[in-house]
C-alpha cells in the first residue's frame, strides 16, 4: 500500500514538474462519480444465477448480463491526460459447470468420480485500478474521446453453501451392510476463500459534459490478461490441457472462480456519470 501511495504521488508530481497543467474543462480538473459496467453473461451465470447459454452448456438460457458498479475519482493533470482511481464492486455466481474430480472415502472404499457440483458458488469482487486517460488530439481532459490504460488489482472472495453445493455419489456399495447408498461430498475447502490477481486495463471511451458540471462517460474497456485467457478458459474447463491436472473438490474454487472473474472482467461496456468538482 505504501508503494501504491508513493506511486500516485510520483505520478501527480511528474505531471506538475514536467508538463504544464492543462486547462481542464472550463478550469475544472477533478471529477468524481459512479460508473456502471456490464457485459453479456454468456456462460457461468451472473448474480441472478442466469446465463445466456444454459447451465452446463445446455440450451434454454436467459438474456443475462454481468454487471459491476464503480466509484471513481479523476484528475486532469495535463491538457490531454488525466489520472484516475477507481473502485469496482460486483457480485456474481458460478454455476459450477466444471466437473471436479471428487474422491469420497466411505465405508472403507475410495470412490472417485468426475462430476459437476450442484448449486452455485458465490463470488464477490473488488477491483482497484489506477488508470490514465489519454485524450485524442483536439480534445481537452476530461472532455472528449480517449484511450485509457492502467494496472488493476482484482480481488475476489468466493464462498459456498455446503448444503447446496455438493457432489453426490449414488449407489456406493457398503461392504459392511452389503447395500448400496449415496454419499455426498460437500467439502470444497474453506467456505470463504480470497484471491488476488493483477491485470492490465485498456479502454476507449468518450466523455461528454452537460451544464458545465455533469459528465457522461461511455465506452468499452478490457482487461488484457483476462482477454488473453479467453481461449485457454474455453478449452480447459475441466482440466489443464498441458499437464492434464484435474480440478478437484479442494482446488475447485481456485480454478473455477478465477475463470469466472476473468469472464466478468474481460470486456465491459460502461456508462459513467460524474460531477466536475473543481
Amino acid at each position: 500500500m505504501k508503494y501504491f501511495k508513493v506511486y500516485i504521488i510520483l505520478i501527480l508530481c511528474s505531471g506538475k514538474l514536467y508538463s504544464q497543467l492543462g486547462p481542464g474543462y472550463m478550469g475544472k480538473r477533478v471529477t468524481a462519480g459512479y460508473g456502471f459496467y456490464f457485459s453479456p453473461a454468456i456462460v457461468g451465470s451472473n448474480a441472478s444465477e442466469a446465463s445466456i447459454i444454459g447451465r452446463g452448456n445446455a440450451t434454454g438460457g436467459d438474456i443475462a448480463f454481468n454487471s459491476m458498479h464503480e466509484g471513481f475519482l479523476e484528475f486532469a493533470f495535463k491538457k490531454r491526460a488525466s489520472v484516475g482511481f477507481s473502485f469496482k464492486y460486483y457480485k456474481t455466481t458460478y454455476d459450477n459447470a466444471a466437473e471436479a474430480y471428487v474422491t469420497s472415502y466411505a465405508n472403507g472404499y475410495t470412490n472417485s468420480q468426475q462430476k459437476s457440483p450442484a448449486g452455485f458458488s458465490q463470488i464477490t469482487g473488488f477491483n482497484y485500478a489506477l488508470y490514465f486517460k489519454i485524450f485524442n488530439k483536439r480534445y481537452v481532459a476530461p472532455w472528449g474521446r480517449y484511450f485509457l490504460f492502467g494496472p488493476t488489482i482484482n480481488s475476489f472472495k468466493c464462498s459456498y453453501d455446503p448444503s447446496s453445493m455438493k457432489v453426490e455419489f449414488g449407489d456406493v456399495y457398503n461392504s459392511n451392510t452389503g447395500t448400496y447408498s449415496s454419499v455426498t461430498v460437500n467439502d470444497f475447502g474453506p467456505q470463504d476463500q480470497f484471491f488476488l490477481r493483477g491485470d492490465l486495463l485498456l479502454g476507449w471511451g468518450r466523455s461528454r459534459i452537460f451544464g458545465n458540471r455533469v459528465t457522461l462517460d461511455y465506452g468499452i474497456n478490457v482487461q488484457v490478461i483476462s482477454l488473453s485467457f479467453t481461449l485457454w478458459d474455453a478449452v480447459s474447463e475441466n482440466a489443464n490441457i498441458f499437464d492434464g491436472t484435474q480440478i478437484t473438490n479442494l482446488n475447485y474454487f481456485e480454478r473455477t472462480s478465477k475463470r469466472r472473474v476473468r469472464e466478468v472482467n474481460r470486456v465491459n461496456v460502461f456508462v459513467k456519470v460524474g460531477l466536475l468538482l473543481f
Binding site: G22, P23, Y25, M26, G27, K79, Y139, V140, W143, G144, R208, I209, F210, N212
Partner: peptide
C-alpha cells in the same frame, strides 16, 4: 455541442 465549444474556447484562452 455546447461542451465542445466551451472546452475549445476555454482552452484557447488558457493557452
Amino acid at each position: 455541442n455546447k461542451d465542445l465549444i466551451n472546452a475549445k474556447v476555454y482552452q484557447m484562452f488558457y493557452e
